[in-house]
């Protein structure tokens, strides 16, 4: 399971960050990136199929667990190797590392996003994206 992003829908409202912070002791596991004042995108752990962070973690704190990448804080040594290993820069650390933990199954960013830019349902998101692309394609011919 992962949180997917419908890139066309992000309006840079920061709700995902504030909600995530609320549930994670003041630290957000999602980072809103605004590019050139022209578009925005929330970045968070992609629950990679071949997680580089898991490979780098010698302490067994990061492990693949049922289709996601789980983080066991009690094993974390704070070495920061996972931060360097993540190609997307979506692991952070204070004392220990932190990243998106999917909020125990009900991601709060998904629930709170005013435009539905964040979603758990891969099928639904791709459906929207595909029909949008198809429509744009059709328009291109007019």
């Amino acid at each position: 399971m992962s949180v997917f992003v419908d890139q066309e829908r992000c309006i840079a409202c920061h709700a995902c960050e504030v909600a995530c912070k609320r549930l994670h002791g003041g630290k957000s596991n999602v980072s809103l990136q605004i590019v050139d004042g022209k578009a925005a995108l929330p970045l968070l752990c992609r629950q990679c199929e071949k997680p580089a962070c898991v490979a780098a973690c010698y302490a067994g704190a990061l492990v693949k667990e049922s289709d996601a990448v789980a983080f066991h804080a009690e094993k974390c040594t704070g070495c920061d190797l996972c931060l360097l290993a993540c190609p997307f820069g979506v692991i952070w650390s204070e004392k220990l590392a932190y990243k998106c933990d999917l909020c125990s199954g009900e991601p709060v960013c998904v629930a709170t996003c005013p435009t539905g830019a964040l979603a758990e349902d891969y099928q639904a998101v791709t459906q929207v994206i595909r029909s949008r692309a198809a429509r744009a394609f059709r328009r291109g011919f007019r």
Partner: peptide
Amino acid sequence: IKYMPDHPVSRGSLCSKGNA
């Protein structure tokens, strides 16, 4: 805060201010 998914306008969502 618990969200309210059946609200007719927000459908459970809240912006950054609502969350704060």
